[in-house]
Design a protein around this nucleic acid. Structure first.
Lengths: 208, 208
DNA sequence: ATATGTGAAATCTTTCACAGCG
DNA sequence: CGCTGTGAAAGATTTCACATAT
């Protein structure tokens, strides 16, 4: 019996990994999984996984394990990914285009609605099925379509300025590929995915 | 006076962000920064930053703050990024190519040495200044050049198999863009950068 | 006067161990 | 019997408050 208690970020950050692993297991034809197996696969302890899941409900069968299909359904509900979220990409450079062409969004609850750039050379060019739009019309389109999520793939120098426009237009979540911190109001969520940051986290541990 | 104590992952994971912010400040012409300012810029508390830095030495001047140029030097030394790390990219699809063309590596201590794929259609094609190489020769080249870092940008189905080859060839750090968990020996570091995982961490908090 | 460096306290997170259930 | 669900204990991280240095 879960209480409507507040869930920590630490727990929330693990749930997408559980979902990813479960989808993988399901695609391999498995029906049931133990917290132990899931933990080994993800490098997370079994009690940790049981505790995380138990915060949201009793999804397992004692003596048996977890039904994979059911757990996937539950996790999608918890993470609000049992719908399709529309996203805009800002920046049609290498990273923006690569993300626009990424095939793995739609199965997992996300869809690119539009891609924007402010470079006249790029505006009007095709990226897969999309035509790059002028940033000028971006705020209006985001408001009209009530889009909540943006992928920021612009140069560092423009990142804050574009972020301000996005937030003003009603964006509530930003996946930030620009190599710079951006400042937003407290009700907007940001995930910073600068590859160099993650490389540097690893080089600390490497022998020179 | 710092002791040669063991530093937690949590601390290490913040250092690259400090470095990024400091480089930004430096590029704006600032000479000195306070823990308070740095914290506000990054969304981290000032005592947290002071404590993190003090684990490695006394880099600040009391009453004054931190000399930015010196702190950048110190952090590069701590993170082992005062040299240039060579990397290989595996997978010349959209993501692999975007990373190969990413301009922000070299200034921050990283360089793409080679890019590989196993698709005969892609092998030999050009990506910026690089020619896509056949994966067959990959292990030998990594060993010969003593490369430590790999960027994994292959489909999920091939990720583990390629990872095994990389680890066998001596790779010690992997930036994993494949949407699947990979298993490695304990002396190999992995950072998983599946965009959907980070999107799902945010949708949890969004109103449907 | 002002901002760092740092033990001690508070908070948060994970692990443990076993009760409880299929 | 085996594995989940979960309070209690252990461990880790962050915050606080102030001594300390310039």
């Amino acid at each position: 019996m879960p209480e409507k208690t507040t869930i920590s970020d630490m727990v929330v950050s693990r749930l997408p990994y559980y979902l990813q692993a479960l989808r993988h297991m399901a695609s391999q034809g498995h029906q049931v999984i133990l917290s132990q197996e899931l933990g080994t696969h993800l490098g997370i302890s079994a009690p940790q996984i049981r505790k995380d899941l138990s915060l949201f409900g009793e999804f397992g069968k004692q003596g048996t394990g977890y039904d994979i299909a059911n757990l996937i359904k539950q996790l999608n509900q918890i993470l609000n990914t049992n719908c399709v979220w529309e996203m805009v990409i800002v920046g049609a450079g290498n990273i923006g285009r690569a993300i626009a062409l990424y095939q793995d969004f739609i199965d997992r609850g996300f869809r690119i609605a539009m891609i924007y750039d402010n470079d006249p050379q790029k505006i009007g060019s095709r990226v897969g099925n999309y035509t790059v739009q002028d940033t000028k019309g971006m705020a209006a389109a985001i408001k009209a379509k009530r889009i909540n999520i943006a992928v920021l793939a612009v140069p560092a120098a423009e990142a804050q300025e574009v972020t301000n426009q996005l937030v003003e237009a009603g964006i509530k979540a930003i996946l930030n590929y620009a190599p710079i911190a951006i400042t937003v109001s407290p009700d907007v969520h940001v995930q910073h995915l600068d590859p160099v940051v993650y490389l540097q986290q690893m080089t600390y541990y490497l022998e020179t």
